[in-house]
Simulated scan of single mutants.
Amino acid sequence: MSAIRVDRVELRRVRLPLIHRFRTSSHAKRELEHILVALTDADGAVGWGEIASPSGPFYSAETVASCWAVARDHLTPLVLGREWEHPAELAGAMARVRGNHFARAGFDMAAWALWTAKGGVPLAAALGGTRPSVEAGVSLGIEASVDELVEQVAARVAEGYRRVKLKIAPGWDVAPTRTVKAVFPEISVHVDANGAYSLDDLGVFRELDGLGLTMIEQPFAPRALVDHAVLQGLIGTPVCLDESVEEPDDLITALRLGAVRILNVKVSRMGGLTPAVRVHDLARAEGVPVWCGGMHEFGIGRAANVALSALPGFTLPSDVSGSAKYYRRDVTTTPVTCVNGVVVVPSEPGLGWHPDIGFIASRTLQAESAQG
């Protein structure tokens, strides 16, 4: 395929209401804003990507507002008019922008979507995917009561999901987790702390260690890799890292310390599909199983997650649950669907799901474009 040159970049800030409020230890979300990126080449072909950053700086330092500024003022000028033959070349050019992984991820995703659509290749196959379908899990937030949490788990199990991730925080950890495990002994359960604990909370983790969990995800702060290694040495349940690993070098450090036995790979946190594949390859070479985490992506980002989850190292259920769990209507013409806990990997070129241009326009709060 000949070189691609991006002649137009369009950014759209889009808001969708959530079907069910999602509560974490710091805040509750009733709706989400993400930024959609459209890259148009000289032939008029378009590739779409999604900047799935949170609105506030609670998961990472990036926000929708900061991503908008970086996308408009720094990434767009780097992309416009540049010729490239493979998305990795564009990712290399964007690496001049330090950090800002969420913002870079949207552009990298759009580049892969454009390149695979023009080349007539399914995105999953281009990334190295080998599975025709992927097993999906769901992530559940902190509810008002344990009974309400059990209701949410029951609804997801009834839909066919066999893996549930529970958010935990000090004061909401052992009791709700023990209840869910007791009521639903047949499903896989793991907990995600989003860095809310410290080594002073070893008693909590010793109790969780006895519940037969698949993993304990990100118990401590992102840079507390030594503490994660200490905890892993004291419990049998695998420690999974999320926020701690943003770059391949972070994973190398965690591996050398013995701080990680499972890795959550998020396209957004890694800065796009290009580095996510690189981290997958490294983890697989070290024998560390990975799974694809989510940021409540709209259909564009969800499509990229499905494609990534088809890679051979993704041996655990990923957060690629159907759009209907989160949104009554998604930004794609057809939603991502999950049947009996399984999502089919598209075999058509590109993302496999197509943007609903009219609906996107109706939900757009802000839009800007640039020509090159």
Rank of each mutant, 00 (worst) to 15 (best):
V342A: 00
G322P: 02
G313K: 01
R302H: 13
A310G: 03
E286P: 01
A307F: 09
V320R: 00
Y326C: 04
L351Y: 05
W291N: 00
P289I: 09
V279H: 01
R328C: 09
S347N: 11
D330Y: 11
G341I: 12
L273Q: 10
N305S: 15
T337P: 02
N340R: 15
V339I: 13
F314P: 06
T337H: 08
Y326D: 10
A307N: 03
C292S: 14
S309V: 04
R329V: 11
M270P: 01
S309D: 05
L316V: 10
L316T: 03
Y326M: 13
W353S: 09
A283H: 05
V320A: 08
A304D: 00
G352E: 04
T334L: 13
W353I: 14
N305L: 13
G322K: 01
A303Q: 02
H280K: 04
T315W: 05
V342G: 01
S347L: 04
P289M: 06
V343S: 06
P312T: 03
P312Q: 00
R328D: 15
G301H: 11
E297Y: 08
V306R: 03
V277C: 11
G322F: 07
H280I: 00
Y326A: 10
V306W: 02
R302A: 12
G313R: 00
A285P: 11
V279G: 11
L308N: 00
R328Y: 13
S318P: 05
L273V: 14
V345R: 05
V279C: 07
G313I: 03
V320C: 06
P275C: 07
A307L: 08
T274R: 10
G352V: 09
P346D: 02
A324C: 04
P349C: 11
I300C: 04
W353M: 11
P317T: 08
D281M: 09
E286D: 08
C338A: 15
T315I: 11
S323D: 15
H296W: 15
A283F: 03
S347H: 06
R302V: 10
V342T: 14
G301A: 12
T274N: 08
V306T: 07
V320P: 00
C292G: 07
V331D: 05
L273G: 08
A324W: 13
V343W: 03
V345H: 03
F298I: 12
S323V: 06
V288Y: 03
V336W: 01
G322C: 07
R329G: 02
V336K: 01
L308Q: 01
S309Q: 01
S321R: 11
L308T: 12
L282M: 12
G293M: 02
V290D: 02
D281T: 14
G294C: 02
V343F: 07
L273H: 10
P349H: 08
T337D: 07
F314Y: 13
S323L: 09
A285H: 13
L282V: 14
R328H: 15
A276W: 05
G350L: 05
V306A: 03
P349I: 13
N305F: 09
A276V: 14
M270I: 07
L282A: 09
M295Q: 07
V336A: 03
W291G: 01
V336Q: 08
G272I: 13
V331I: 15
E297S: 07
V331C: 10
S318A: 07
T333V: 15
L273M: 14
M295S: 09
A303G: 12
R278K: 15
E297R: 09
